[in-house]
Computed example of a mutant assay.
Amino acid sequence: MPIGLAPTVRSKFEHHKIDEAALDGAPMFDLPFNPGVQIRGYSAINQPNCQIIIEDFMPGTEFDWTFVHDEMQYCISGEMEVEVSLPPLYMETTKAHITPGTVFSYPVGARKHVKVIGDAPFRHLCFCPPSPDYPFPTLEQLKGS
């Protein structure tokens, strides 16, 4: 190892096939900082460079969230309306109607207000670089392995 360089934990190749049945049966848990809001999901990949989470927000759910990292998402199914306010003063806001097949991103510090519409959960992939190591169960944990 060269002198003066700190070792860096490296990510490795990993792949994952989404298990929708496992997600449908995943336990609900409270969304932090949002009393009474329940979500479900699992961590599909969690490497130093990125945590990838498959997540459901339930029909009729409405909540606020502030991002402590950049995050990209992809809507698999369901619909939501989102209003995003951007730092530093949160005066710049954008509204969007997110439907299946939509890719969208939140910059670090963004605040969002979400309203899930329709009768189906809002199912999406979250790409969180670098990994925040959110405490979602893994697929293996959901299946009891």
Rank of each mutant, 00 (worst) to 15 (best):
M1K: 12
M1W: 03
P2W: 12
I3Y: 07
I3Q: 09
A6F: 11
P7V: 02
T8E: 13
V9E: 13
V9A: 12
V9P: 08
V9K: 10
V9W: 06
S11A: 13
K12T: 11
K12G: 09
K12P: 00
F13E: 09
E14R: 08
E14W: 01
H15A: 15
H16V: 04
H16L: 02
H16R: 07
H16G: 01
K17C: 10
D19P: 06
D19H: 14
D19Q: 10
A26W: 06
A26F: 03
M28I: 04
M28G: 01
N34T: 02
P35N: 12
V37H: 02
V37S: 04
V37Q: 05
V37C: 03
Q38D: 00
G41S: 08
G41C: 04
G41P: 02
S43G: 08
S43R: 15
A44P: 00
A44H: 06
A44F: 02
I45A: 09
Q47K: 07
N49H: 12
N49R: 09
C50N: 11
C50M: 15
C50D: 09
Q51C: 07
I53R: 09
I53N: 10
I53V: 15
I54F: 14
I54C: 10
E55V: 14
D56I: 02
P59I: 12
T61D: 14
E62I: 01
F63P: 02
D64C: 05
W65Q: 08
W65K: 03
T66W: 00
T66P: 00
T66L: 00
D70T: 01
M72R: 14
M72H: 09
Q73I: 01
Q73A: 10
Y74S: 07
C75I: 15
S77G: 13
S77V: 07
G78P: 02
G78R: 05
G78W: 09
E79G: 02
E81G: 00
V82R: 05
L86A: 08
P87K: 07
L89E: 11
L89H: 06
M91D: 12
M91N: 14
E92D: 08
T94F: 00
H97G: 02
H97R: 12
H97T: 15
P100Q: 14
G101S: 07
G101E: 06
G101Q: 05
T102L: 11
V103F: 08
F104A: 09
S105E: 12
S105R: 11
Y106I: 01
Y106N: 13
P107H: 11
A110P: 05
R111F: 01
R111D: 00
K112D: 02
H113Q: 08
K115D: 00
K115W: 02
V116H: 06
G118M: 13
A120C: 02
P121M: 08
P121K: 04
F122H: 15
F127Y: 15
F127W: 03
C128L: 15
P129R: 10
P129Q: 10
P130M: 10
S131Q: 07
P132H: 11
P132M: 10
P132Y: 11
D133H: 13
D133G: 06
Y134V: 00
Y134E: 11
P135N: 13
F136Q: 07
T138I: 03
E140G: 14
Q141A: 14
L142V: 05
K143W: 01
S145I: 14
S145C: 07
S145A: 11
